[in-house]
Design a binder for these strands. Structure first.
Length: 418
RNA sequence: GGAGACUUCGCCUAGUCUGGUCUAUGGCGCCGCACUGCUAAUGCGGUUGAGGUUAACCGCCUCUCCCGGGUUCGAAUCCCGGAGUCUCCGCCA
């Protein structure tokens, strides 16, 4: 949710942000109107309520006719208060709905436009010179690392079994990611992957992403699509110390229905219903958020360097930002058989947007409580295996394990077990 | 799955049976001031959070006793639903 004070003071800023995203400006005016209506309703209710309380104080001492008259008046008042209270309730709901409809304010400097209007910040590393490279699935099957067919038999499409050296490689990658995270001062976390509706809604995933989410009807719980959800909700409703940013690294399984992606990335493990992910998550003061964003990006790039992948960094255009994000950087690794870069990491600065909904605050130097800023960023997913397999493949179908990964994988070359 | 106890303004706690004087008691902690030439001790004052009014402040008002409803002129207190914590029973890969 955006800051209502900012909206009142500078509505044009929000309108400009909506234009940059290519989204409707009318939601801004709807929100302004809803805010105005709510304040009027609140004032009407409070006036009546104050009068009711005044009269209520006289009640215990009143006797006889005086008491009867008082009772008659307060009875009327009570009815009026009830009506006014209901009006406030309705106005609150309307305000909340209008509030949720407005995405975060785009940060200054974000390129305007849609998906293809990103700006490439840099390209790093050398693309491998491969003669007739095999794609990750062919390599995965050759190595006994990925079993899509049996996954489909047991669970359906987009549910791979990771097997043999594939399982070892994934575990090694994740272990490296967690060690890197700890080295950078992040607190490792293994969160629950089933969460209550509040956590899901608080992180904004029941809005545009609702159809992407698995839900357990019998228990009214949701399967998270990223550990961002439990990590963000971790401090919900709390006032936390933020003299230093609070940083976490969550390792969790993620579940996505991939409802809108039929026919997209159907081959291999690029896009699956269930995968593990190491996700970084920071809480910090709003004024530190931009620096924290760079920090998360730097950790991601450090990790990409450790696994020796060629990649580029893009500054995502406004129209391609999630509704919570004010700015987003993606690291995309080179995928030889696709001849293009594919997203491996994504780090978003959500400023106070997410924390306002989740009510995460800190105490400022002057003793006042303020809404925190939140940021998130990817540190490892199975999609990284796609890039690692393809970029480090050898002519014989084996795969070189990057040096930094070797201790965690337990070997320097991937070959079929046995 | 069943039964019971509990949840109060940072922490602990009084109040709930018997609705109004609860503008929620006391202790601890924290902040400020005074005093003692340091520290400590002592005294005084302050200390939940949110919203509205205001250019802002002061002040005033409203809401907030786990959450949501209800009863009532009036709810921390009574009723219903939910969440969480603990205890016991049952079941269990």
């Amino acid at each position: 949710m955006i800051d209502l004070r900012l909206l009142r003071d500078e509505p044009d800023l929000i309108r400009a942000s909506q234009r940059a995203r290519g989204e409707s400006e009318s939601v801004v005016d709807d929100l302004l109107a809803a805010d105005e209506r709510r304040r009027l309703a609140v004032q009407a209710f409070e006036t009546l309520r104050a009068e009711q309380k005044q009269l209520g104080k006289l009640m215990p001492k009143a006797v006889g006719d005086e008491k009867a008259a008082l009772l008659a008046r307060t009875r009327d008042l009570a009815a009026g208060v009830k009506v006014a209270e209901a009006a406030v309730h309705d106005a609150d709901q309307a305000l909340r709905a209008a509030h949720l409809a407005v995405p975060n304010v785009v940060a200054p400097g974000v390129p305007a436009g849609g998906e293809d209007d990103y700006v490439v910040l840099r390209e790093v590393g050398d693309k491998p010179d491969l003669d007739g490279p095999r794609d990750h699935l062919e390599l995965g099957e050759l190595l006994g690392a990925i079993d899509m067919e049996r996954g489909a038999k047991v669970s359906g499409s987009r549910f791979p079994f990771m097997t043999g050296v594939g399982a070892l490689l994934q575990l090694g990658l994740f272990q490296l990611a967690m060690q890197e995270a700890v080295a950078h001062g992040l607190i490792p976390v293994i969160p629950p992957v089933l969460v209550k509706p509040e956590a899901m809604e608080g992180t904004g995933f029941l809005g545009a992403h609702a159809s992407e989410v698995y839900r357990l009807e019998a228990d009214d719980l949701y399967l998270v699509g990223t550990s961002e959800v439990p990590l963000a909700a971790y401090h919900s409703g709390e006032i936390i110390p933020l003299d230093e940013p609070l940083r976490y690294a969550g390792w969790s399984t993620c579940f996505r229905r991939e409802a809108g992606s039929y026919g997209k990335d159907t081959r291999g493990i690029i896009r699956v219903h269930q995968f593990d992910k190491v996700e970084m998550f920071s809480f910090c003061r709003p004024e530190d958020a931009a620096a924290e964003h760079q920090r998360l990006l730097a950790i991601e790039e450090g990790m990409l360097a450790k696994v020796e992948l060629p990649y580029r960094v893009i500054d995502t255009a406004a129209g391609d930002l999630g509704s919570s994000a004010a700015r987003k950087y993606d690291c995309e690794a080179w995928v030889p058989t696709q001849g293009r870069y594919r997203e491996l990491t994504s780090t978003s600065n959500c400023t106070t947007f997410q924390a306002r909904r989740l009510n995460v605050r800190y105490r400022d130097g002057d003793g006042r409580t303020r809404t925190a800023a939140t940021l998130n960023g990817t540190l490892a997913t199975p999609r990284w295996l796609v890039a690692i397999l393809e970029n480090h493949q050898q002519p014989d179908g084996s795969v070189r394990v990057p040096k930094a990964l070797q201790p965690f994988v337990g070997r320097d070359v991937l070959e079929p077990l046995r």
